[in-house]
Amino acid sequence: MTVIRLVAAALLLLPTAAIAAEGMPQLDFANKLTTAQVVWGAIIFVVLYLLLSRWALPQVGAVLATREATISADLDTARAAKAKADAAIVDLTDATQRARAEAQASIANAIDQAKQAAAAQSATANAKLEAQITAAEQSIGAARTAAMGALREVATDTANTVINRLTGLTPNSARVDSAVGALLAARGQT
């Protein structure tokens, strides 16, 4: 309770204290210091303005301008480097593609040549085989013709021998021959 009373007393005292202390010193315009401070303040303000605008602020402005210039120059350099790198990448891609195309072309070429060589080889081999087959067929044909020629003789002889053994007679060779010839003709073999 004492505290509250104390605080209340102090708060009540405040305005009285303000009035008691010869009013606000700020409103005491009879005091020549009040106006003198404004005159001095104006002088200080003008000097501060001149020093700031002519000397201090341009320095900071120069630092900021230098930074801006440096950063933009660095950015330009970086952009140029990037452009160069991009060009190099394009060159590299081109070269790779060209090399790949060349390699593929030479591979295709080699395959083509190998195919042609193989085809030529097989053609000669085929021709040789063909010739051999033809020769073999011809010799077979000759052998067959010879065998067929002999067939009549063999058949006639066999017929004569068989007749001779069975009958003990010497067959008429002209008849046997014609009979064999007729039979061979009937089977389509001459």
Partner: peptide, 28 residues
């Protein structure tokens, strides 16, 4: 010359402002 403590503080304030800019900008 009726120079008050108020004006002295103005001088100090001006000096501090100028010092901030001068010493701030000096390293560049």
């Amino acid at each position: 010359v009726n120079f008050t403590q108020s004006n002295l503080m103005m001088l100090i304030a001006s000096g501090l402002t100028l010092a901030l800019l001068y010493f701030g900008a000096r390293p560049r």
